[in-house]
Amino acid sequence: MESQLADRLITPVWYHPTLGLLAGGLIAIAELRNLAVFIAALLVYAVGCGVLVSSYRRLTGVWVSGMRRGPAGRISIQLVGTLYVIAGLAALLGLAAGVPGAFLAGGVVAFVAVVVLGRRFDDALRRELRDES
């Protein structure tokens, strides 16, 4: 049953790049140093994540939270931690040290991190489900 489920959990190719664009865009938009624009981006991020989740559910018919026990869950935590570190470093360099383009660079790195770790999460999840069966 779990093995059958693992075959079903095929994340659409656009899922992680879109999530990466949302997360990376949120960091990159801070480059404008405009609070109103940042709040608007935060709203776009929240709505975008909601749309992504419901699209995933509609396509696969299931929902698996990233915060689960096991190797896949550890990759999720790693991803969240990486995004916090990227955002923190970008803020440190951009706001405290005044390095131009720090948020933009942070956004690009965040995009790559989401795509790479997101795909790793999928692989780990499928492996977990197959091992359980």
Binding site: M1, E2, Q4, L5, G61, V62, W63, V64
Partner: peptide, 18 residues
């Protein structure tokens, strides 16, 4: 139960098809 134990939630149609 086996299917639902592996995920957070599943659509009725997914369970039926499985």
């Amino acid at each position: 139960c086996a299917l639902l134990a592996a995920v957070d939630s599943a659509d009725f149609a997914t369970v039926r098809d499985s």
